[in-house]
Design a protein around this nucleic acid. Sequence first.
DNA 1: TATTGTTATACTCTATAACTATA
DNA 2: TATAGTTATAGAGTATAACAATA
Lengths: 152, 152
Amino acid sequence: MQQEILLNQKIGLRLSRAGMLSKLFANQIFAKNGAVIRPEQFTVLYALKENNGMYMRQLANITYKDRPNMTRIVSILENNGYVISELGAEGRQVKKLYITDKGKKVCEELLPSILQIWQDTVEGIRAEEIECFLNTLNKMEENIREKTIIQV
Amino acid sequence: MQQEILLNQKIGLRLSRAGMLSKLFANQIFAKNGAVIRPEQFTVLYALKENNGMYMRQLANITYKDRPNMTRIVSILENNGYVISELGAEGRQVKKLYITDKGKKVCEELLPSILQIWQDTVEGIRAEEIECFLNTLNKMEENIREKTIIQV
DNA sequence: TATTGTTATACTCTATAACTATA
DNA sequence: TATAGTTATAGAGTATAACAATA
């Protein structure tokens, strides 16, 4: 019965589990390489690096974090001087965020770690398999994203 | 340059991010369907259901949790009557864990949620893509698992 | 009033070290 | 001494509601 076969895949469990393991691994590689930042904070910082000058709300949307958590993580990054914020035009209560040189430096310093994580993860896997994997992961993320409520 | 292409994939970030989103989605589906258990606890309970009578240490190994966290989660499950434990042979301080009928019932009740998560996730994705995805995910998990230290 | 962001609070989960019990 | 598990503790991240500020 097809439903049973599908059920046996337990995709949600698999994705969460793999994600957790990957985060744990990243955490250990970061720590080993003397990183001054935690993976979850790096996710936000890196997203900002690729979209500098973004509004906090947009950044939250990209990193799948709700508003209170976003505030907390950004304030950690600000306190450490990796990010500065600026109120939007006309004094509106809308924050634009910018990565600082110090923040960029942190990202640069972590590139070898990111590369190592990549290499360790894909070791022995063929390029076309990786491509298929990433394409499918994209589709899955889009599917889930549509149905997930963030920052209620 | 190949290294740059590889780096641009940022596989660790992608996996962690997708896993986080999937967990968030699962949490919301669980809550909406009145689940009495949290996804992380379900991960442990479900793993036990499939490997009843396992030692705590083995279960920790499967679910990628270190010993203190395993103790904490199992004690939640025990307090709620979903799991019972028994000391191994000869009074050794080695715990065997068993899922109770109540625990099995909780798993049963969550099957529709699990199925819904699956269906929502794979919507519009072809079977062979899913197969390739899961195979590759398996390989990646094996790769990472080898290099990750758990319960130091 | 609707939107953006902050604060408060409680909870879940993680990480490390120190401890107990037993082979 | 080595292994399995617990306890203590600190911290990171999540979730919800209530609040302030502003268009």
